[in-house]
Amino acid sequence: MQQSSVSEPASESASALASEPALLRQRWQALRQSQPRTRARDAADQLGVSEAQLLATGVGEDAVRLDLRFDVLLPRLESLGRVMSLTRNAHAVHEKRGTWRNVELHGLRALVLDEDIDLRLFLSRWRFGFALREHLADGLRRSLQFFDATGTAVHKVFLEDPGGAAAFDALVEELRHVDQVQLLPVERASPVAPPRPDGEVDVEGLRAGWLALKDTHDFFPLLQRLGVARTQALRLVGRELATPVAPESLAWVLERVAASGLSIMVFVGNPGVIQIHTGPVRTVRPTGPWLNVLDPGFNLHVRADNIQAAWVVRKTTRDGVVTSLELFDAAGENIALVFGQRKPGHPELPAWQTLMRELTEALSVPEAQP
Results as ranks from 00 to 15, higher is better:
4 S>P: 04
4 S>L: 15
15 S>K: 10
15 S>Q: 14
21 P>M: 03
23 L>R: 11
28 W>L: 06
30 A>G: 13
38 T>L: 14
42 D>T: 09
43 A>T: 02
48 G>L: 00
52 A>D: 08
53 Q>S: 03
54 L>N: 05
58 G>H: 13
68 L>D: 03
68 L>P: 03
72 V>T: 14
75 P>C: 08
81 G>I: 09
85 S>T: 14
89 N>F: 00
94 H>W: 03
98 G>F: 06
102 N>E: 15
103 V>I: 13
104 E>Q: 15
113 L>V: 05
121 L>K: 04
122 F>G: 06
125 R>K: 06
148 D>Y: 09
154 V>P: 04
157 V>H: 01
157 V>T: 13
159 L>Q: 02
161 D>F: 08
162 P>D: 15
162 P>C: 12
164 G>M: 03
167 A>C: 10
171 L>P: 04
171 L>D: 07
173 E>P: 05
178 V>R: 15
179 D>W: 06
179 D>E: 12
180 Q>H: 08
180 Q>R: 08
183 L>N: 04
185 P>R: 02
186 V>G: 01
187 E>C: 01
188 R>W: 04
188 R>G: 07
191 P>Y: 01
191 P>D: 05
198 D>P: 05
203 V>A: 02
204 E>Q: 12
212 A>C: 06
217 H>D: 08
218 D>H: 13
219 F>L: 05
223 L>K: 06
225 R>Q: 15
229 A>I: 09
232 Q>Y: 07
238 G>A: 05
239 R>Y: 04
240 E>Q: 12
245 V>R: 00
246 A>F: 00
247 P>W: 01
258 A>E: 08
265 M>H: 08
271 P>Y: 08
273 V>Q: 09
275 Q>D: 11
280 P>K: 03
284 V>N: 03
286 P>N: 10
288 G>S: 08
294 L>P: 06
297 G>K: 11
297 G>V: 12
302 V>S: 03
302 V>N: 04
304 A>G: 14
308 Q>D: 12
309 A>M: 10
318 R>M: 12
319 D>Q: 09
324 S>A: 06
326 E>K: 05
326 E>S: 07
338 V>L: 07
344 P>M: 14
355 L>Y: 00
362 A>G: 00
366 P>Q: 10
368 A>S: 15
